[in-house]
């Protein structure tokens, strides 16, 4: 199971290695533009996760896992929703309802709302990224 699907095919390995950072970059773009354009944390997480899946397919499971260790994945899985929930709590502390972004807190409401929504999206992205990869690894025989 640990062997790559494509054996020692140089083309596949090289292209996959080359493409992966771009996929991740695109993921980050989708993440950061989530609150103004189509996209968001969930989609971004899936896109970034797909880069690791590509690496696993091309380079084999062990090599992919080497780049994304369990010790990193585990905190990421938990911290995502934690960020989400804590942003909600921040809104309460700032005097609004839970997850009420449009509040005046150090900055005007519009700015606060942009910051907080981005932060929530980042949280979602982190979790989805880690979870998708974990599920893939688990199904691949982790």
């Amino acid at each position: 199971m640990s062997e790559s699907l494509f054996g020692e095919d140089v083309i596949v390995r090289t292209i996959a290695r080359l493409v992966a950072p771009f996929i991740q970059l695109f993921g980050l773009y989708v993440l950061m533009h989530g609150h103004v354009s189509p996209g968001g944390g969930f989609q971004a997480g899936v896109i970034i996760a797909s880069s690791f899946i590509l690496l696993a397919l091309a380079l084999g499971l062990p090599e992919s896992k080497e780049r994304f260790k369990k010790t990193i994945r585990l905190p990421m899985e938990s911290s995502g929703p934690l960020i989400f929930a804590l942003i909600g709590v921040t809104c309460i502390l700032a005097g609004g309802y839970y997850l009420q972004y449009g509040i005046a807190f150090l900055f005007p409401p519009a700015v606060v709302s942009a910051i907080l929504i981005s932060a929530v999206e980042i949280g979602i992205g982190i979790t989805v990224l880690a979870m998708i990869v974990t599920i893939f690894y688990a199904m691949a025989g982790d």
Binding site: L74, P75, S78, S79, P81, L82, A85, L86
Partner: peptide, 15 residues
């Protein structure tokens, strides 16, 4: 929130 937050923290601390 209390149980949900705990659910997110537990795996990290348990780790």
């Amino acid at each position: 929130l209390i149980p949900l937050l705990t659910a997110y923290i537990t795996p990290m601390l348990g780790w």
